[in-house]
Amino acid sequence: MKLTIDQTKGDKKVPVYSRTNPFQAKVLKNINLNHEGSNKETRHIEFSLKDSGFSYVPGDALGIVPENDQELVAELLTEMQWDGEQVVTINKKGDTLPLKEALTTYFEITLLTKKILQQAAQFTESEELKALLDAEDVSRVKEYIYGRDLLDMLRDFGPWKASAQEIVSLLRKIPPRLYSIASSLAANPDEVHLTIGVVRYTSYDRDRKGVCSVQCAERAEAGDTLPIFIQPNKHFHLPESEETDIIMVGPGTGIAPFRSFIEERSVNKGSGKSWLFFGDQYSATDFLYQDELEKYQKEGVLTKLDTAFSRDTEQKVYVQHKMLENSKELYEWLQAGAYFYVCGDKEYMAKDVHEALISIIEKEGNMSREEAEEQLAAMKKEKRYQRDVY
Protein backbone atom coordinates (compact mmCIF):
# COMPACT_ATOMS: atom_id res chain seq x y z
CA MET A 1 0.00 0.00 0.00
CA LYS A 2 1.25 3.43 -0.89
CA LEU A 3 2.12 5.55 2.13
CA THR A 4 1.54 9.27 2.28
CA ILE A 5 4.75 10.80 3.54
CA ASP A 6 4.79 13.27 6.36
CA GLN A 7 7.78 15.43 7.17
CA THR A 8 11.13 13.66 7.33
CA LYS A 9 12.39 13.16 10.88
CA GLY A 10 16.15 12.90 10.59
CA ASP A 11 16.62 10.29 7.89
CA LYS A 12 13.37 8.60 8.80
CA LYS A 13 10.25 9.06 6.66
CA VAL A 14 7.12 9.07 8.81
CA PRO A 15 3.92 7.65 7.28
CA VAL A 16 0.70 9.62 7.68
CA TYR A 17 -2.16 7.34 8.66
CA SER A 18 -5.67 8.21 7.54
CA ARG A 19 -8.94 6.82 6.19
CA THR A 20 -7.18 5.85 2.95
CA ASN A 21 -4.11 4.54 4.78
CA PRO A 22 -5.39 3.10 8.07
CA PHE A 23 -3.14 2.34 11.03
CA GLN A 24 -2.82 -1.27 12.20
CA ALA A 25 -3.74 -0.78 15.85
CA LYS A 26 -2.98 -3.42 18.43
CA VAL A 27 -5.89 -4.65 20.55
CA LEU A 28 -4.98 -4.20 24.23
CA LYS A 29 -8.21 -5.41 25.79
CA ASN A 30 -11.48 -6.92 24.56
CA ILE A 31 -14.17 -7.71 27.14
CA ASN A 32 -17.92 -8.34 27.17
CA LEU A 33 -19.62 -5.65 29.28
CA ASN A 34 -22.85 -7.64 29.65
CA HIS A 35 -23.16 -10.20 32.40
CA GLU A 36 -24.21 -13.82 32.08
CA GLY A 37 -27.85 -14.21 31.14
CA SER A 38 -28.03 -11.03 29.06
CA ASN A 39 -29.76 -11.02 25.67
CA LYS A 40 -26.99 -8.77 24.42
CA GLU A 41 -23.25 -8.75 23.87
CA THR A 42 -21.53 -5.38 24.13
CA ARG A 43 -17.77 -5.26 23.64
CA HIS A 44 -15.41 -2.83 25.34
CA ILE A 45 -12.30 -2.76 23.15
CA GLU A 46 -9.10 -0.86 23.85
CA PHE A 47 -6.57 -0.12 21.08
CA SER A 48 -3.03 1.19 21.27
CA LEU A 49 -2.39 4.37 19.28
CA LYS A 50 1.38 4.19 19.84
CA ASP A 51 3.25 5.35 16.69
CA SER A 52 0.00 6.21 14.88
CA GLY A 53 0.31 9.99 15.13
CA PHE A 54 -3.45 10.07 15.85
CA SER A 55 -5.13 12.38 18.30
CA TYR A 56 -8.82 12.91 18.98
CA VAL A 57 -11.24 14.83 21.17
CA PRO A 58 -14.38 13.56 22.96
CA GLY A 59 -17.18 13.28 20.40
CA ASP A 60 -14.95 12.05 17.57
CA ALA A 61 -15.44 8.63 15.95
CA LEU A 62 -13.09 5.77 15.18
CA GLY A 63 -13.25 4.04 11.80
CA ILE A 64 -12.47 0.34 11.47
CA VAL A 65 -11.89 -1.25 8.06
CA PRO A 66 -13.50 -4.68 8.56
CA GLU A 67 -13.18 -8.07 6.91
CA ASN A 68 -16.02 -10.38 5.95
CA ASP A 69 -16.75 -13.59 7.80
CA GLN A 70 -14.70 -16.45 6.35
CA GLU A 71 -17.61 -18.91 6.66
CA LEU A 72 -19.79 -16.66 4.50
CA VAL A 73 -16.98 -16.35 1.91
CA ALA A 74 -16.59 -20.14 1.89
CA GLU A 75 -20.36 -20.56 1.33
CA LEU A 76 -20.23 -18.16 -1.63
CA LEU A 77 -17.32 -20.03 -3.22
CA THR A 78 -19.10 -23.37 -2.74
CA GLU A 79 -22.47 -22.10 -4.00
CA MET A 80 -20.96 -20.74 -7.22
CA GLN A 81 -18.26 -23.43 -7.54
CA TRP A 82 -15.65 -20.71 -7.82
CA ASP A 83 -11.90 -21.20 -7.39
CA GLY A 84 -10.76 -19.05 -4.46
CA GLU A 85 -7.28 -18.75 -5.97
CA GLN A 86 -8.55 -17.27 -9.24
CA VAL A 87 -7.24 -13.72 -9.67
CA VAL A 88 -9.89 -11.01 -10.14
CA THR A 89 -9.69 -7.29 -10.86
CA ILE A 90 -11.09 -5.35 -7.91
CA ASN A 91 -11.25 -1.72 -9.07
CA LYS A 92 -11.02 0.67 -12.00
CA LYS A 93 -7.29 1.10 -11.45
CA GLY A 94 -6.86 -2.54 -12.40
CA ASP A 95 -5.60 -3.81 -9.02
CA THR A 96 -6.02 -7.55 -8.59
CA LEU A 97 -6.46 -10.05 -5.74
CA PRO A 98 -7.15 -13.77 -5.47
CA LEU A 99 -10.96 -14.19 -5.40
CA LYS A 100 -11.15 -15.54 -1.83
CA GLU A 101 -9.07 -12.62 -0.52
CA ALA A 102 -11.10 -10.12 -2.54
CA LEU A 103 -14.37 -11.45 -1.10
CA THR A 104 -12.88 -11.39 2.42
CA THR A 105 -11.08 -8.06 2.50
CA TYR A 106 -12.32 -5.90 -0.36
CA PHE A 107 -15.95 -6.37 -1.42
CA GLU A 108 -19.20 -5.65 0.44
CA ILE A 109 -21.05 -9.00 0.35
CA THR A 110 -23.59 -8.62 3.18
CA LEU A 111 -25.76 -5.85 1.69
CA LEU A 112 -27.76 -5.77 -1.52
CA THR A 113 -28.89 -2.72 -3.49
CA LYS A 114 -31.45 -2.24 -6.25
CA LYS A 115 -28.58 -1.43 -8.61
CA ILE A 116 -26.90 -4.81 -7.92
CA LEU A 117 -30.17 -6.62 -8.70
CA GLN A 118 -30.67 -4.60 -11.89
CA GLN A 119 -27.13 -5.26 -13.12
CA ALA A 120 -27.25 -8.93 -12.12
CA ALA A 121 -30.40 -9.46 -14.21
CA GLN A 122 -28.32 -9.57 -17.43
CA PHE A 123 -26.59 -12.76 -16.18
CA THR A 124 -29.68 -14.87 -15.51
CA GLU A 125 -32.93 -15.90 -17.17
CA SER A 126 -34.73 -15.95 -13.81
CA GLU A 127 -38.36 -14.96 -14.33
CA GLU A 128 -38.62 -14.23 -10.60
CA LEU A 129 -35.90 -11.57 -10.72
CA LYS A 130 -37.43 -10.06 -13.84
CA ALA A 131 -40.86 -9.93 -12.17
CA LEU A 132 -39.37 -8.37 -9.04
CA LEU A 133 -37.63 -5.61 -11.01
CA ASP A 134 -40.62 -5.02 -13.33
CA ALA A 135 -43.12 -4.82 -10.47
CA GLU A 136 -45.04 -1.56 -10.36
CA ASP A 137 -44.88 -1.68 -6.58
CA VAL A 138 -41.37 -0.29 -5.92
CA SER A 139 -41.53 -1.35 -2.27
CA ARG A 140 -41.19 -5.01 -3.37
CA VAL A 141 -37.51 -4.53 -4.27
CA LYS A 142 -36.90 -2.76 -0.95
CA GLU A 143 -38.64 -5.60 0.85
CA TYR A 144 -36.52 -8.21 -0.92
CA ILE A 145 -33.23 -6.40 -0.24
CA TYR A 146 -33.91 -5.88 3.48
CA GLY A 147 -32.12 -8.54 5.54
CA ARG A 148 -30.71 -10.37 2.51
CA ASP A 149 -27.18 -10.55 1.09
CA LEU A 150 -25.23 -11.57 -2.02
CA LEU A 151 -25.50 -15.28 -1.21
CA ASP A 152 -29.30 -15.01 -1.02
CA MET A 153 -29.43 -13.32 -4.42
CA LEU A 154 -27.17 -15.94 -6.01
CA ARG A 155 -29.27 -18.78 -4.55
CA ASP A 156 -32.65 -17.21 -5.36
CA PHE A 157 -32.16 -16.22 -9.00
CA GLY A 158 -29.77 -18.71 -10.59
CA PRO A 159 -28.57 -20.47 -12.65
CA TRP A 160 -26.04 -17.77 -13.51
CA LYS A 161 -24.33 -17.24 -16.86
CA ALA A 162 -21.56 -15.15 -15.37
CA SER A 163 -17.94 -15.51 -14.39
CA ALA A 164 -16.70 -14.72 -10.88
CA GLN A 165 -15.19 -11.54 -12.34
CA GLU A 166 -18.55 -10.42 -13.74
CA ILE A 167 -20.33 -11.02 -10.43
CA VAL A 168 -17.73 -9.25 -8.25
CA SER A 169 -17.74 -6.31 -10.67
CA LEU A 170 -21.31 -5.63 -9.46
CA LEU A 171 -20.10 -5.13 -5.87
CA ARG A 172 -18.89 -2.03 -4.09
CA LYS A 173 -15.88 -1.78 -1.82
CA ILE A 174 -16.57 -2.70 1.81
CA PRO A 175 -17.04 0.61 3.66
CA PRO A 176 -15.35 1.30 7.00
CA ARG A 177 -17.58 1.18 10.09
CA LEU A 178 -17.61 4.23 12.36
CA TYR A 179 -18.00 4.04 16.14
CA SER A 180 -18.25 6.83 18.71
CA ILE A 181 -15.04 6.93 20.73
CA ALA A 182 -15.61 5.90 24.34
CA SER A 183 -12.45 7.32 25.90
CA SER A 184 -10.64 10.57 26.58
CA LEU A 185 -7.08 10.87 25.28
CA ALA A 186 -6.21 13.00 28.32
CA ALA A 187 -7.29 10.12 30.60
CA ASN A 188 -5.82 7.36 28.39
CA PRO A 189 -2.70 8.63 26.57
CA ASP A 190 -1.84 6.57 23.47
CA GLU A 191 -5.14 4.65 23.66
CA VAL A 192 -8.61 4.71 22.14
CA HIS A 193 -11.60 2.75 23.49
CA LEU A 194 -14.84 1.64 21.81
CA THR A 195 -18.20 0.31 23.00
CA ILE A 196 -19.58 -1.99 20.29
CA GLY A 197 -22.94 -3.75 20.32
CA VAL A 198 -22.53 -7.14 18.63
CA VAL A 199 -25.10 -7.72 15.88
CA ARG A 200 -26.39 -11.27 15.37
CA TYR A 201 -29.82 -12.19 14.05
CA THR A 202 -31.67 -14.74 11.93
CA SER A 203 -33.55 -13.85 8.76
CA TYR A 204 -34.82 -16.01 5.91
CA ASP A 205 -33.64 -19.17 7.72
CA ARG A 206 -30.02 -18.06 7.91
CA ASP A 207 -27.96 -16.74 10.81
CA ARG A 208 -26.57 -13.28 10.04
CA LYS A 209 -23.63 -11.48 11.60
CA GLY A 210 -22.76 -7.79 11.73
CA VAL A 211 -19.57 -7.58 9.63
CA CYS A 212 -17.48 -5.43 11.95
CA SER A 213 -19.14 -6.04 15.32
CA VAL A 214 -18.78 -9.83 15.05
CA GLN A 215 -15.21 -9.51 13.77
CA CYS A 216 -14.47 -7.42 16.87
CA ALA A 217 -16.26 -9.90 19.12
CA GLU A 218 -14.87 -13.13 17.69
CA ARG A 219 -11.67 -12.34 15.80
CA ALA A 220 -9.96 -9.47 17.63
CA GLU A 221 -8.19 -10.80 20.69
CA ALA A 222 -5.60 -8.92 22.73
CA GLY A 223 -2.42 -8.76 20.61
CA ASP A 224 -4.27 -8.84 17.27
CA THR A 225 -4.37 -5.73 15.08
CA LEU A 226 -7.17 -3.98 13.23
CA PRO A 227 -6.90 -1.19 10.60
CA ILE A 228 -8.25 2.03 12.11
CA PHE A 229 -8.45 5.80 11.53
CA ILE A 230 -9.87 8.80 13.38
CA GLN A 231 -12.99 10.50 12.03
CA PRO A 232 -13.43 13.99 13.57
CA ASN A 233 -16.99 14.99 14.45
CA LYS A 234 -17.38 18.77 14.38
CA HIS A 235 -21.06 18.56 15.31
CA PHE A 236 -20.76 16.66 18.58
CA HIS A 237 -18.36 17.93 21.23
CA LEU A 238 -18.08 19.23 24.76
CA PRO A 239 -18.75 22.91 25.45
CA GLU A 240 -15.62 25.06 25.26
CA SER A 241 -15.97 26.06 28.89
CA GLU A 242 -15.40 23.40 31.56
CA GLU A 243 -17.86 25.36 33.72
CA THR A 244 -20.84 24.68 31.44
CA ASP A 245 -23.33 22.05 32.64
CA ILE A 246 -24.04 19.07 30.40
CA ILE A 247 -27.02 16.69 30.15
CA MET A 248 -26.30 13.42 28.33
CA VAL A 249 -28.85 10.87 27.10
CA GLY A 250 -27.17 7.65 25.95
CA PRO A 251 -28.96 4.31 26.32
CA GLY A 252 -27.17 1.11 25.29
CA THR A 253 -24.02 1.72 23.25
CA GLY A 254 -25.11 5.38 23.09
CA ILE A 255 -23.17 5.72 26.33
CA ALA A 256 -19.86 5.58 24.41
CA PRO A 257 -19.19 9.30 23.79
CA PHE A 258 -20.45 10.18 27.26
CA ARG A 259 -17.86 7.92 28.85
CA SER A 260 -15.31 10.04 26.97
CA PHE A 261 -17.02 13.28 28.08
CA ILE A 262 -17.00 12.19 31.74
CA GLU A 263 -13.37 10.99 31.59
CA GLU A 264 -12.34 14.32 30.05
CA ARG A 265 -14.18 16.30 32.72
CA SER A 266 -12.63 14.11 35.41
CA VAL A 267 -9.10 14.91 34.21
CA ASN A 268 -9.71 18.63 33.63
CA LYS A 269 -11.57 19.07 36.92
CA GLY A 270 -14.02 21.64 35.53
CA SER A 271 -16.77 23.01 37.76
CA GLY A 272 -19.60 22.28 35.29
CA LYS A 273 -22.25 19.83 36.49
CA SER A 274 -23.07 16.69 34.49
CA TRP A 275 -26.20 14.56 34.31
CA LEU A 276 -26.41 11.20 32.56
CA PHE A 277 -29.53 9.31 31.52
CA PHE A 278 -28.66 5.69 30.72
CA GLY A 279 -30.96 2.84 29.81
CA ASP A 280 -30.92 -0.79 28.68
CA GLN A 281 -32.88 -4.01 29.23
CA TYR A 282 -31.97 -5.40 32.69
CA SER A 283 -30.01 -3.66 35.45
CA ALA A 284 -28.44 -6.94 36.61
CA THR A 285 -26.95 -7.83 33.22
CA ASP A 286 -26.92 -4.71 31.04
CA PHE A 287 -25.74 -1.80 33.19
CA LEU A 288 -22.74 -0.88 31.03
CA TYR A 289 -19.79 0.68 32.91
CA GLN A 290 -21.79 0.56 36.16
CA ASP A 291 -18.76 0.54 38.50
CA GLU A 292 -17.08 3.42 36.66
CA LEU A 293 -20.22 5.55 36.61
CA GLU A 294 -20.93 4.98 40.29
CA LYS A 295 -17.31 5.86 41.11
CA TYR A 296 -17.59 9.11 39.12
CA GLN A 297 -20.82 9.89 40.93
CA LYS A 298 -19.17 9.33 44.31
CA GLU A 299 -16.29 11.60 43.28
CA GLY A 300 -18.72 14.30 42.15
CA VAL A 301 -17.54 14.20 38.52
CA LEU A 302 -20.98 12.91 37.55
CA THR A 303 -23.54 15.05 39.35
CA LYS A 304 -26.63 12.98 38.54
CA LEU A 305 -27.22 9.51 37.13
CA ASP A 306 -30.71 8.38 36.12
CA THR A 307 -31.23 4.88 34.75
CA ALA A 308 -34.10 3.20 32.91
CA PHE A 309 -34.06 -0.60 32.60
CA SER A 310 -37.00 -1.43 30.38
CA ARG A 311 -37.40 -5.11 31.25
CA ASP A 312 -37.03 -4.76 35.03
CA THR A 313 -40.61 -3.56 35.44
CA GLU A 314 -43.96 -4.71 34.13
CA GLN A 315 -44.39 -1.43 32.29
CA LYS A 316 -41.42 -0.60 30.07
CA VAL A 317 -39.49 2.44 31.25
CA TYR A 318 -37.15 4.23 28.86
CA VAL A 319 -34.79 7.21 29.13
CA GLN A 320 -37.44 9.66 27.90
CA HIS A 321 -39.71 8.60 30.80
CA LYS A 322 -36.90 9.39 33.24
CA MET A 323 -36.48 12.80 31.61
CA LEU A 324 -40.19 13.54 32.04
CA GLU A 325 -40.04 12.41 35.70
CA ASN A 326 -37.29 15.01 36.23
CA SER A 327 -38.84 17.67 34.01
CA LYS A 328 -38.68 20.57 36.47
CA GLU A 329 -34.99 20.12 37.29
CA LEU A 330 -34.08 19.35 33.69
CA TYR A 331 -35.74 22.58 32.55
CA GLU A 332 -33.87 24.52 35.25
CA TRP A 333 -30.56 23.13 33.96
CA LEU A 334 -31.46 24.14 30.41
CA GLN A 335 -32.48 27.64 31.54
CA ALA A 336 -29.11 27.94 33.29
CA GLY A 337 -27.34 27.25 29.98
CA ALA A 338 -26.77 23.47 30.06
CA TYR A 339 -25.87 21.68 26.82
CA PHE A 340 -28.10 18.73 25.91
CA TYR A 341 -26.67 15.66 24.12
CA VAL A 342 -28.27 12.53 22.67
CA CYS A 343 -26.45 9.48 21.32
CA GLY A 344 -27.81 6.18 20.03
CA ASP A 345 -30.74 4.82 18.04
CA LYS A 346 -32.06 7.30 15.46
CA GLU A 347 -35.26 5.48 14.54
CA TYR A 348 -37.04 5.36 17.90
CA MET A 349 -35.03 6.59 20.89
CA ALA A 350 -33.81 9.92 19.48
CA LYS A 351 -37.33 10.78 18.28
CA ASP A 352 -38.86 9.94 21.67
CA VAL A 353 -36.19 11.96 23.50
CA HIS A 354 -36.81 14.91 21.15
CA GLU A 355 -40.56 14.73 21.86
CA ALA A 356 -39.94 14.51 25.63
CA LEU A 357 -37.67 17.55 25.45
CA ILE A 358 -40.34 19.61 23.66
CA SER A 359 -42.94 18.50 26.23
CA ILE A 360 -40.66 19.50 29.12
CA ILE A 361 -39.95 22.96 27.67
CA GLU A 362 -43.65 23.43 26.87
CA LYS A 363 -44.84 22.38 30.34
CA GLU A 364 -42.15 23.89 32.57
CA GLY A 365 -41.73 27.04 30.47
CA ASN A 366 -45.51 27.51 30.31
CA MET A 367 -45.38 27.85 26.52
CA SER A 368 -47.24 26.66 23.47
CA ARG A 369 -45.84 23.70 21.54
CA GLU A 370 -44.76 26.07 18.79
CA GLU A 371 -42.81 28.25 21.26
CA ALA A 372 -41.18 25.15 22.78
CA GLU A 373 -40.09 24.01 19.31
CA GLU A 374 -38.68 27.47 18.63
CA GLN A 375 -36.69 27.38 21.88
CA LEU A 376 -35.28 23.97 20.94
CA ALA A 377 -34.39 25.23 17.46
CA ALA A 378 -32.57 28.16 19.08
CA MET A 379 -30.65 25.74 21.33
CA LYS A 380 -29.66 23.76 18.24
CA LYS A 381 -28.42 26.92 16.55
CA GLU A 382 -26.37 27.80 19.65
CA LYS A 383 -24.91 24.22 19.51
CA ARG A 384 -26.54 23.52 22.87
CA TYR A 385 -28.59 20.63 21.49
CA GLN A 386 -26.33 18.06 19.80
CA ARG A 387 -27.13 14.58 18.50
CA ASP A 388 -24.99 11.67 17.40
CA VAL A 389 -27.60 9.20 16.18
CA TYR A 390 -27.39 6.19 13.91
Results as ranks from 00 to 15, higher is better:
Lys2Cys: 02
Lys9Met: 03
Val14Met: 04
Pro15Phe: 01
Thr20Cys: 08
His35Leu: 07
Glu36Lys: 13
Ser38Lys: 11
Glu46Asp: 14
Ser55His: 15
Tyr56Arg: 12
Tyr56Asn: 11
Pro58Ala: 10
Leu62Tyr: 08
Val65Leu: 14
Glu67Val: 14
Asn68Ala: 02
Val73Ser: 07
Glu85Val: 00
Thr89Val: 13
Lys93Phe: 05
Thr96Trp: 02
Thr96Val: 10
Ala102Ile: 04
Leu103Tyr: 08
Thr105Phe: 03
Tyr106Met: 03
Phe107Met: 05
Glu108Gln: 11
Thr113Phe: 01
Ser126Ala: 09
Ala131Lys: 14
Leu132Asp: 08
Ala135Ser: 15
Glu136Ile: 14
Ser139Gly: 05
Glu143Ala: 02
Glu143Pro: 00
Leu150Met: 06
Phe157Val: 02
Pro159Phe: 14
Lys161Ile: 01
Ala164Val: 00
Glu166Ala: 12
Leu171Phe: 06
Ile181Cys: 11
Leu185Gly: 11
Ala186Pro: 10
Ala186Met: 09
Ala187Thr: 11
Val192Thr: 09
Thr195Lys: 05
Arg206Asn: 11
Asp207Ser: 08
Arg208Gln: 09
Gly210Ala: 12
Val211Gly: 10
Arg219Pro: 03
Arg219Trp: 11
Glu221Ile: 00
Phe229Trp: 02
Ile230Gln: 11
Ile230Phe: 10
Pro232Gln: 01
His235Met: 11
Leu238His: 06
Glu240Lys: 13
Ser241Val: 00
Glu242Val: 10
Met248Gly: 04
Val249His: 06
Gly254Gln: 11
Arg259Asp: 00
Ile262Arg: 03
Ile262Gln: 03
Arg265Gln: 13
Val267Gly: 09
Asn268Tyr: 10
Gly270Ile: 09
Ser274Tyr: 05
Ser283Tyr: 10
Glu294Phe: 11
Thr307Asp: 04
Lys316Gly: 04
Tyr318Ala: 07
Met323Phe: 08
Glu325Val: 14
Trp333Lys: 15
Lys346Ser: 14
Ala350Glu: 15
Lys351Cys: 09
His354Arg: 12
Leu357Pro: 02
Ile360Pro: 04
Gly365Ala: 07
Arg369Asp: 03
Glu371Gln: 00
Glu373Gln: 15
Gln375Trp: 08
Leu376Val: 13
Lys380Leu: 08
Arg384Gln: 13
Tyr385His: 07
